[in-house]
Amino acid sequence: MTDEPAGPEDGNFGTKETIKTEAIDNKAHLQAYWRRNLKYLSILLSIWFVVSYLCAIIFADALNEVTFGGFKLGFWFGHQGSIYVFVVLIWVYVHLMNKLDKEFGLDEGE
């Protein structure tokens, strides 16, 4: 995991100058950033919904017919699997947003 905020001092993408000169585009720029954010959210939250509410609750009985090792799958999703997926989802989000911030010049730098 890349946890050290070791970015170089000069790592600012959106410098003051560019933002000023493109003031009119700025609004569209921010909207594009927000739309991408919403897209990521809807994808990640769909997965969140599927593993917890569908796999572990609504289709739990059906999935319990499937076993791997000693686990029945519906039971496993409720007691283990969904939690693992939750952790992964947050870290994927962290990664995606850090990239997005950089791409749009909206990261906070150091």
């Binding site: 959210l41 990640l44 939250l45 969140w48 917890s52 572990a56 609750i57 739990a60 519906g74 039971f75 409720g78 007691h79 969904s82 939690i83 939750f86 989802l89 947050i90 989000y93 962290v94």
Partner: peptide
Amino acid sequence: IISFVGRDGSVYLMGWTGGYVLLALL
């Protein structure tokens, strides 16, 4: 609690962790 209710204990396991996804994303 889980050891007495079995699979239904998933409400606590998922309920008290899944909220963090909402917290982190929203």
